[in-house]
């Protein structure tokens, strides 16, 4: 375990800041998909490296929490390790890589494979909170568009994509409609993860430190990817591929280039290990067992 640093408050930021962030989180939960501006603090981790998610985590975390941090699905990625070291050093909380044991999971670019419960919070790091930024650079204009539900521009963008490319070009960060009201950027999760935001049991919190916005998808909220009747939303295609470590065919795979071939492995390293030990481990909570 990392040694605690001296001379700093529990979880680094001062208590007034934590209280403000928790209040903004409550506002975000009350208005699903709405981006709540907040007084984002600078942290010893660089802007753009997860400071929005981190401020949410630091504001919520208590001594009894069990924390998991992943980056691209991996617990051991350098940035995940770096953030873990920082939180360990300023809080001393337990860290786990087991998705089901964590009370708070902070993540960059992935939702863990295993279904999360209603006693867990998933905190997503967000680089661009504004889903309309691809069609409108000005903040004052995008705020107006959200207020008036004036979403024509992004629908036209998607339509023109299909006309030009016969496909929508957005890879990750696929825009979603939340509770039939706000179009939201789900953070750069793959499209594979998008359906898992819909009617989930878990609270999803999104933090953008540099852009100073917090937003949320509360449990059991409808989240729909933008799609047309004759051009449906489509997730990444891993047909015919399987993880070379655990043989899973129902997980998001990383493509790895080796000298003579391509190899695929699970992006969720913790789940991959579980599957490796027991191929019958389920991704979803078996309600019949409960």
């Amino acid at each position: 375990m990392t040694e605690m640093v001296k001379g700093y408050n529990f979880a680094f930021i001062d208590e007034y800041a934590k209280r403000e962030i928790r209040r903004k989180v409550l506002k975000a939960v009350s208005i699903p998909g709405y981006q709540v501006p907040f007084g984002s603090r600078e942290l010893p981790i660089a802007r753009g490296w997860g400071t929005g998610g981190l401020q949410i985590t630091l504001s919520l975390i208590g001594q009894k929490d069990i924390l998991k941090i992943i980056d691209q699905g991996s617990d051991d990625s350098v940035n995940a390790v770096n953030i873990k070291r920082f939180i360990e050093a300023t809080t001393g909380v337990f860290i786990t890589s087991d998705t089901l044991k964590a009370t708070i999971i902070q993540t960059r670019h992935r939702i863990p494979e295993e279904e999360l419960g209603d006693d867990q919070i998933l905190v997503l790091q967000v680089p661009y909170p504004e889903p309309l930024r691809i069609v409108e650079p000005e903040e004052k204009e995008t705020r107006r568009m959200h207020a008036e539900m004036d979403y024509a521009k992004i629908w036209v963008f998607l339509y023109e994509n299909i006309v030009k490319w016969k496909e929508i070009t957005i890879g990750a960060r696929y825009p979603v409609m939340v509770a039939g009201r706000y179009i939201m950027d789900p953070s750069p999760i793959p499209r594979y993860d998008v359906p898992r935001l819909n009617n989930a049991r878990t609270l999803y919190l999104f933090g953008a430190g540099r852009e100073k916005r917090i937003y949320a998808v509360p449990p059991f909220t409808e989240v729909k990817p933008l799609e047309f009747e004759d051009h449906r939303f489509r997730i990444e295609n891993f047909k015919g591929k399987a993880c070379e470590l655990c043989a899973s065919t129902d997980t998001f795979l990383d493509e790895i280039i080796l000298d003579d071939k391509r190899m695929y492995t699970c992006s969720d390293t913790s789940f991959c290990k579980k599957r490796g030990n027991n191929p019958r481990v389920l991704k979803y909570i078996d309600r019949n067992q409960q």
Binding site: G171, A172, Y192, E236, D254
Partner: peptide, 12 residues
């Protein structure tokens, strides 16, 4: 930072 998950989406 690693971006291989998002890049996988773009590749797809």
């Amino acid at each position: 930072l690693p971006h291989y998950v998002t890049f996988q989406s773009d590749l797809d």
